[in-house]
């Protein structure tokens, strides 16, 4: 482990923390353009976070330690996952410590505690949100793991850095299994980050909320941390998709210059993925909750077809 590697690791985490709100601002801006509304500033998410941080926390009387602990835990797990996903370089010192399966586990921990916190206060909406979120999770997680297994089979490793390196060397480009896994990954990303066909991130109507219903009771810095973690999760999924399917540009050494170029390329890639996200969101309407089984079922189908076509066709 060299000094450069540690610097890169820190840079990557800093990038994730700093740029995630900007990406959300970019997505909101694109969405406004697509719907011909006037846009807020690109930096509006930062201002929102700042405002929330300066406000007092209002806690319910019967809130337990779970409720107070959850925002920090969610924020922490997202940062930890951000340290594992190769964004700038594949030579991350923390990368060998966790593979993709652990990554899915980290997301699951965050979701588990958010669901607990949703039920902790004892309001009706919190419980409803938790049960909905867990329903979505129970359908999305198998599909996510299946898609990841397909990519791992093609690249013969579950380590993200190794997958990115093998994809980089170009042995695995034109493969139907990867195409299927990619489509499945897009569908799962929409579900996991709470975007439109599954959940509406900007809803204020309680009955349609999934994720928002769970965090309805949070305020002040707790809410800021959770919102920030949500933004980072969105950015992280884009970066994860880039590392798994289009890793071109990620540095394969620990040189800082290469890392810088990788950072610029990553921002371009993530920005472009934002355009795709907005196109999907504008083109589709939110689904009824009970149709989500079909949506996530088709994600599972895609991922499994990817795995089968690996065995049949390759």
């Amino acid at each position: 482990m060299t000094v450069n590697q540690i610097v890169m690791e820190c840079l990557q985490i800093a990038l994730l923390i700093a740029v995630a709100p900007l990406f959300v601002g970019w997505v909101r801006m694109l969405k406004c353009w697509a719907q011909s509304r006037s846009t807020a500033s690109l930096f509006q998410p930062y201002r929102d976070l700042l405002k929330l941080f300066s406000k007092d926390v209002i806690l319910a009387e019967n809130a337990s330690w779970i409720f107070r602990f959850t925002p920090y835990l969610v924020f922490g797990t997202v940062i930890l996952s951000g340290a594992v996903v190769p964004m700038l370089t594949t030579k991350l010192p923390l990368s060998p410590s966790a593979d993709v399966i652990v990554l899915v586990g980290l997301f699951a921990i965050a979701r588990f505690f958010t669901a607990l916190a949703g039920m902790d206060i004892g309001t009706a909406f919190g419980g409803m949100g938790s049960s909905r979120e867990m329903m979505v999770a129970s359908l999305a997680e198998p599909a996510m793991l299946m898609a990841i297994f397909t990519v791992s089979l093609v690249n013969q490793s579950t380590s993200l850095s190794h997958i990115a390196e093998v994809m980089y060397s170009g042995h695995a480009v034109l493969k139907p299994s990867l195409a299927f896994a990619f489509i499945a990954f897009i569908l799962i990303t929409l579900a996991e980050t709470g975007r439109i066909p599954v959940d509406n991130p900007s809803t204020h109507l309680e009955l349609t909320m999934l994720h928002e219903a769970m965090i309805l009771e949070y305020s002040g810095r707790h809410l800021a941390l959770i919102e920030w973690a949500g933004m980072m999760k969105l950015f992280l999924f884009m970066a994860l998709g880039s590392a798994l399917f289009v890793p071109w540009g990620i540095a394969r050494s620990d040189s800082l210059l290469m890392g810088l170029m990788a950072g610029v390329l990553l921002l371009l890639k993530v920005g472009a993925s934002g355009v795709v996200l907005v196109l999907i969101e504008t083109g589709l309407a939110k689904m009824r909750l009970f149709r989500l089984t079909e949506f996530l079922g088709s994600a599972f189908l895609m991922a499994t077809l990817g795995m089968l076509s690996f065995f049949i066709l390759e």
Binding site: L174, P176, S177, A179, F180, S298, L305, S309, L313
Partner: peptide
């Protein structure tokens, strides 16, 4: 062979699409 297997995969996909 690669193009062939790619097309085969998409034929299967359309079959599933028609199924549902």
């Amino acid at each position: 062979a690669q193009i062939n297997s790619f097309l085969a995969a998409f034929v299967l996909l359309t079959a599933f699409g028609m199924l549902v």
